[in-house]
Write a protein that binds this DNA or RNA. Structure first.
Lengths: 336, 336
DNA sequence: CGAAGATCGTGAATCGTTTCAAGCTACGCT
DNA sequence: AGCGTAGCTTGAAACGATTCACGATCTTCG
């Protein structure tokens, strides 16, 4: 395990360590012959830069030392395609700006969230996009003080940059569409743990119903936001009296489960029950009854959040926090 | 940005830097009063350990210095639920052993793959699980020389530990099941870019067909492994003559698209065409026609790979490479 | 021919943390 | 009192890469 260091490369090439470093960082100021000799030595020894050492001693002597060229993206569950698409969008923006992206998921544990942010702080990441925020504001303030910029994903906060989708508007759009189809006995299907955005979708829908003078929005809460939970919800729906004529689901996975089980139980979609989902995952387009749904600009969300983080990093203390709100979009297919 | 360092904490608490370090790493050898004073100072100054410096100076003076307590998981596409489940399984094992996990995806780019592995090498990660391997063996050998252990995911290699699912057996199981149902006009639906495992599933199925003396396996290659690609495949299937009676799909997403479109086009599943998928994603269970599919032990795969990596790291040079092969399992539902 | 640039290389200082040998106290024992 | 010991603390030496003020050559031109 002889950690090949820059020093051994220098010895092998018959130059000083400073020159090796120059070959690595400003190849153009080194004479070609020397450069080739150094590169050859690097190749022969299989030298790989030690990023820790590099970060430790960094920046011209006045600048604060040692920020990594990396951002973290902390979300609740990376196995959820919504989250991984947002992360991917962010990664694209960061990559373009020459930054690495660290994907971290908290799996709904406050402990893991704290751990993830602590990790990023210890790594001296340039900043972080967080969607899951269980941590108290004091602790966040502290990380920020230590120089890491924090952008909220899908949440808002007075002292933060944030990028979010207008979920209230999404709920409104969905409910208005169902009302326009004459479906005024409406149910909202959701599952726990219920993320804030889902709560807002429900509010938006409820408000629109109230404004239109239609009946109450019946809320069915399942134990997850998954297709199988949707199937259970469908069974509950058909046993209600009267059976709702419009169903708005907290996400597409639920909606797909609801539609499949409704069809299975003999209800026609959308004739008997109109169903509308949320997210526009790829499957929505190609399920048995193509799903009408609310499309969220997912990659764009991640991309915009990343741009905010990059701006905040670049602008330094002159920075003013900005809140970006993206509007979701109704995709009309066949289920409603 | 005054990077609060251990030195300032020491000054504030009126102790030496060595003592602060001891509070951080071996709290029990420090007198309680001192420890409290140091902890208070840390709290007041908002001190966060600099992980780069820590890693740089590490290990008792003989051991090779500076391996991070982190492993990388490099897969092709983290937005694919299969990959993220494998990664999650690995993360669980690593977490239990006190290691961090870095998720990296290559998005089918050899460049990004090289970048990802280079990144891990530069970070001095303890090791890496890779499923995407476009990189030549010489370069891998080099990383390994530099002390990083490499475990192959879903691939095998003579000089590596590896964990994989027996895809040939998976193809065999699927084809045998369809044969047992009397479906001997069989098609295989796949998409490009076609991962090695998919190629093996196809081989397994073809071999089983040949052994049974049934007809050729017709192969339909689409431009992706997605539901919409599946829909296109379905349209191609019904225009074949004779129309195949059994369809084996490279993954469940394709299969769901195939089933939905077949139903839409008026074919009955499984009466007219039996369809079998691969992966057993959650949706397979709850699609319009619950999907018969081959279940892969995904988290377990990640977990086992992680255990191999941990073992290799622990055993050092005494280590002997092991190949783990997990067997997939037939899940009979309604589509076949 | 000699001074002024231009072009390259050098090597010591530095980043923040951990480790370890050595030092310091307070205490118990003879 | 003298000595040993246990319990804490100290301070300096690493770790590996980067930077920067200086040298050392080599060109160019009055």
């Amino acid at each position: 395990m002889p950690q090949t260091s820059i020093r051994e490369v220098a010895r092998r090439a018959g130059v000083s360590v400073g020159t090796v470093s120059n070959v690595l960082n400003r190849p153009n100021i080194v004479a070609e012959a020397t450069r080739d000799r150094v590169l050859a030595a690097i190749e022969e020894l299989g030298f790989v830069r030690n990023e820790s050492a590099r970060r430790l001693r960094q920046g011209p002597d006045d600048r604060p030392s040692g920020r990594a060229r990396a951002f973290g993206v902390v979300v609740e569950d990376l196995t959820n395609p919504y989250a991984s698409d947002v992360a991917r969008g962010a990664e694209l923006a960061f990559e373009e700006a020459g930054f690495e992206t660290l994907w971290l998921s908290t799996d709904h544990s406050a402990d893991r969230e704290r751990r993830a942010l602590e990790l990023l702080a210890e790594q001296r990441a340039a900043g972080v996009l967080v969607s899951s925020v269980e941590t108290g504001p004091d602790r966040i303030a502290r990380w920020r003080e230590s120089g890491m910029c924090v952008v909220l994903l899908d949440r808002a906060g007075p002292d933060f940059c944030s990028a979010q989708v207008d979920h209230v508007a999404g709920g409104d759009i969905a409910a208005a569409h169902l009302l326009a189809l004459g479906r005024d006995r409406m149910a909202f299907v959701t599952g726990v743990p219920e993320p804030q955005p889902v709560v807002e979708r429900c509010e938006g829908a409820a408000r629109t119903l109230a404004k239109a003078g239609a009946g109450e929005l019946a809320v069915l809460t399942q134990d997850a936001l998954s297709p199988t939970a949707g199937q259970r919800a469908a069974r509950a729906l058909v046993s209600m009296s009267p059976v709702p004529t419009g169903v708005f689901c907290a996400n597409d996975l639920l909606a797909i489960g609801v539609v499949n089980e409704l069809v299975r139980l003999g209800a026609r979609v959308p004739e008997d029950v109109a169903v509308i989902g949320y997210d526009d995952i790829e499957l929505a387009r190609s399920s048995a009854v193509p799903l009408t749904t609310i499309r969220q600009p997912r990659r764009e969300l991640g991309w915009e959040a990343a741009e905010l983080a990059l701006a905040e990093t670049a602008e330094g203390s002159a920075h003013e926090h900005r809140q970006i709100v993206l509007r979701p979009e109704l995709m009309v297919r066949e289920s409603a």
